[in-house]
């Protein structure tokens, strides 16, 4: 089973849309002696991200330069006491992130806000409606996939 990515984007002047993929792959290990969860690399194929509308999917994949950068990934993830960090790479640009982790019955959730232009992504606009340079990204990690070391 794979983990999930959910992205919430805001439209200007009004509206929003969601980008989803349930094809986030990567191994997690629980280091019991240190009480931390580690992952060397979590990655999602850029073209697996979907918005529910085919044209918008095509625009999204083009916007993310999927041909040149077919994967979005986060490396060196360390989670301890529900605080995490990692290096996120989008469009070939890496940024170190810190985030809070929450939990539900089946998943750990990491939610953070991203500024797409910081990843050298050009402003997105179509037919007079544009996307805010501020998106919310949520990563959902299946608890049962976290293996003790």
């Amino acid at each position: 089973m794979a983990h999930e990515v959910h992205i919430l984007g805001r439209l200007l002047p009004v509206g929003s849309f969601e980008i989803n993929s349930d094809k986030l792959y990567g191994d997690f290990v629980l280091l019991k002696d240190k009480g931390t969860i580690n992952s060397k690399k979590l990655s999602v194929r850029t073209t697996s991200l979907e918005t529910g509308i085919q044209l918008r999917d095509e625009h999204l994949h083009k916007y993310l330069n999927a041909n040149k950068h077919p994967r979005i990934f986060i490396k060196d993830v360390i989670i301890k006491n529900f605080k995490g960090s990692g290096n996120l790479t989008i469009n070939g640009v890496s940024k170190k992130l810190s985030f809070q982790v929450t939990s539900d019955k089946t998943h750990y959730l990491a939610k953070f806000t991203l500024i797409p232009s910081q990843f050298k992504l050009q402003p997105a606009s179509f037919m007079g409606v544009s996307v805010e340079d501020n998106i919310e990204l949520t990563i959902k990690v299946l608890k049962q996939e976290i293996l003790p070391k």
């Binding site: 439209l11 002047p13 009004v14 509206g15 929003s16 849309f17 969601e18 529910g52 179509f126 037919m127 007079g128 409606v129």
Partner: peptide, 21 residues
């Protein structure tokens, strides 16, 4: 996912002509 009429209509409360989007 379009909770607002304003995304697609010139009139932000809906009805009337559609905008380009």
């Amino acid at each position: 996912g379009y909770t607002s009429c304003a995304t697609c209509h010139y009139n932000p409360f809906g009805n009337g002509p559609l905008n380009d989007y």
